[in-house]
Amino acid sequence: MSVIEQKTPEGVAAGITTRPSPWRFWFVTERKIRALRGYASSAFITSIANPVVYLLALGVGLGSLVPGGVQGVDYLVFVAPALFAMSAVFVANEESTYQILVGFRYRPIFTAMHQTPLRGVDIVVGHVTFVAIRMLATAAIYFLVIIAFGGISQWSALWMVPIAAMTGMALGSLIMAYAATITTDRGQLPMLYRLIFVPLFLFSGTFFPLEQLPVFLQPIGWISPLWHGAEWGRVVSYGHVEPTWLTVVHAVYLAILIVLGVTLAIRTFTKRLSS
């Protein structure tokens, strides 16, 4: 069903239908895909170049100083799943922070969308769908990069692509819900990066097993989507041994965060757009 009704004989639009359609969110997704051309270079740097630099500096460079490897595998193989998940987190940071703030405050495209039959839920689902597509595309490209450097040891590692996307969405959906509440920009998002993203990056078992951290820092990893994504990725990437129940916890925890974040984002968008 078309969103725009047939024009009258005089050539004036008769109006826009308000009947709900389960696919209306795709208009938001398509708009985001087209708008991506405006910041394609920035998107490439944050989602591909940054993780590749980390892979070269840490997986290859630092890895040469760890000849014994970690957990019975080469250091590059160990660190690759975590950097893989980080590639999706970089996308989440870009698309769920300033893109949301700009869409509400500085270039109120969300308000304009809401003047059409698009509801808050359509806008959120459309935006989330775009972010998921971008994460999957980024992860797929990064997968090829890791293969080129020898960081993949078995074909089951292909599961790292959706796992990375789930990791990014688990964090990004929550950040998106928070960013939608910001009405006055007082530097909340830079502080969020320093106080949330950086600690999670450092204390989520990214570069070494979480057990090597002091006991009082390990809980940061337990609640971090990045740790759950990295550990799950290691299981499918090179057969990291862990209890089956823990692998299930990784999947369930990420899924719960995604549902929670998207639900909060829908409520926040709907409330703000209706006020």
Results as ranks from 00 to 15, higher is better:
residue 6 Q to E: 15
residue 16 I to P: 05
residue 21 S to I: 01
residue 22 P to L: 09
residue 23 W to L: 15
residue 29 T to Q: 03
residue 32 K to W: 15
residue 33 I to H: 04
residue 37 R to L: 13
residue 37 R to S: 13
residue 47 S to C: 14
residue 52 V to L: 15
residue 54 Y to F: 15
residue 57 A to D: 03
residue 60 V to T: 11
residue 62 L to V: 15
residue 62 L to E: 02
residue 63 G to K: 00
residue 67 P to D: 00
residue 73 V to Q: 10
residue 82 A to Q: 05
residue 92 A to G: 04
residue 93 N to S: 12
residue 95 E to C: 08
residue 97 T to S: 14
residue 98 Y to T: 11
residue 105 R to P: 00
residue 110 F to G: 00
residue 110 F to D: 03
residue 116 T to P: 01
residue 117 P to Y: 00
residue 119 R to E: 12
residue 122 D to M: 03
residue 123 I to P: 01
residue 125 V to K: 10
residue 130 F to K: 01
residue 130 F to P: 00
residue 133 I to C: 13
residue 134 R to N: 13
residue 139 A to V: 10
residue 139 A to Q: 08
residue 152 I to H: 09
residue 163 I to Y: 06
residue 166 M to E: 02
residue 167 T to L: 10
residue 174 L to D: 02
residue 174 L to E: 00
residue 175 I to T: 14
residue 179 A to I: 07
residue 179 A to T: 08
residue 180 A to W: 02
residue 183 T to L: 12
residue 187 G to M: 00
residue 187 G to H: 00
residue 197 F to D: 07
residue 199 P to E: 00
residue 203 F to L: 14
residue 211 E to P: 02
residue 216 F to H: 11
residue 220 I to Q: 06
residue 222 W to E: 07
residue 224 S to N: 07
residue 225 P to D: 05
residue 228 H to V: 05
residue 229 G to C: 06
residue 230 A to K: 01
residue 233 G to H: 09
residue 238 Y to P: 04
residue 240 H to N: 12
residue 241 V to N: 09
residue 244 T to V: 15
residue 249 V to L: 13
residue 254 L to E: 00
residue 255 A to M: 08
residue 256 I to G: 04
residue 267 R to C: 09
residue 271 K to F: 11
